[in-house]
Amino acid sequence: MNPYETLDEIFFWSPAVAKKSMFDINRLWDPKFKIGPKMKVATYGSCFAQHIGRALAGRNFNWMIAEPAPQGLSKDNSKKFNYGIFSARTGNIYTTTLLAQWVSWATGDVSPPGEVWEKGGRYYDPFRPNIEPNGFESREEMKVSRSLAVEAFKKSILECDVLVFTMGLTESWFNAEGGYEYPMCPGTVAGEFDEKKHQFVNQDYTQIRKALVSCLRGIKKLNPKLKVLLTVSPVPLTATMSGKHVLVATMESKSILRAVAGSVASELRFVDYFPSYEIINSAPYKGAFFEPNMRSVNPVGVNHVMDQFFSCLQDKFPLKLPEKRIVDAGSDDAVCEEELLNAFQGGGK
């Protein structure tokens, strides 16, 4: 008798994967804690996090929107102005250090920098550069809007039961003088790139893990009942500054993020990891869940990920789940600032 003999079939590749249709591969996640339909769930992070929020709402779960669209704004315009994309109008939070930055603003430990980007007489928020399609009409309007987003972010952290954070990138841009981070390289959406001031940092495992643990512990102090669910975005990089081929850079980045997520989920009892990255990206799925550009995740993939999410929850914590509503799971309508980098491909080369 050896220890493998008593293992469940999910621990063996052949019965769990090779002998199954990819759509029948199941029990991929063993949830640490219950996420019930009434629990408030806040979602932030990279582009893929948007699908989680929408899927939760689509199943009549309590997706927390702390900064709702004003009453009367149409669905299309709500999306255009980034309402109901994440739990507050933060825009994409791609890195763990950016998440930590938002938390520091929410706690009041640090004030948001005064930097404002101007382009064509309009004003852009360096930390949410695409939050309004044509920027703001004044610096003051931009700052008021950001302060509302910070307040809403804080409210969501204080009041939610579960925080879902989707880790997206290791590559980041910092203001070397101010020591703060931008979600996008200055000069892409707006702003002006200054090589003396703007510093590229491809964060390594240690830096990312340290920022995440410290940030999550800080959040836990604010809201002791909080649980955190980490995911890693399966969406490849649009562009890389690493000097490596974008495919190699993508695999390296995602591998680091995946390793950090797993390690932190193992260490902290209130943190879990959901394998959306594996479901979309691993070999048995043959890339079938990507659009022809091999980057965007298609609606079938999004639905499959979310079906796995809810079925694993249901297996572990049998719940009377609300009926699924029909939701548009289209991947192409995810709001993703990073894709704007596509506009710069081949420029000057």
Binding site: P70, G72, L73, E132, N134, F136, E141, L148
Partner: peptide, 25 residues
Amino acid sequence: FSFPLLRAGLSRQVREVLISDVFCF
């Protein structure tokens, strides 16, 4: 038809689009 109440802090763009939406939809 409800009179649209605009909360403080909305940008001018959002206000304009909101009023237009109230009409269109």
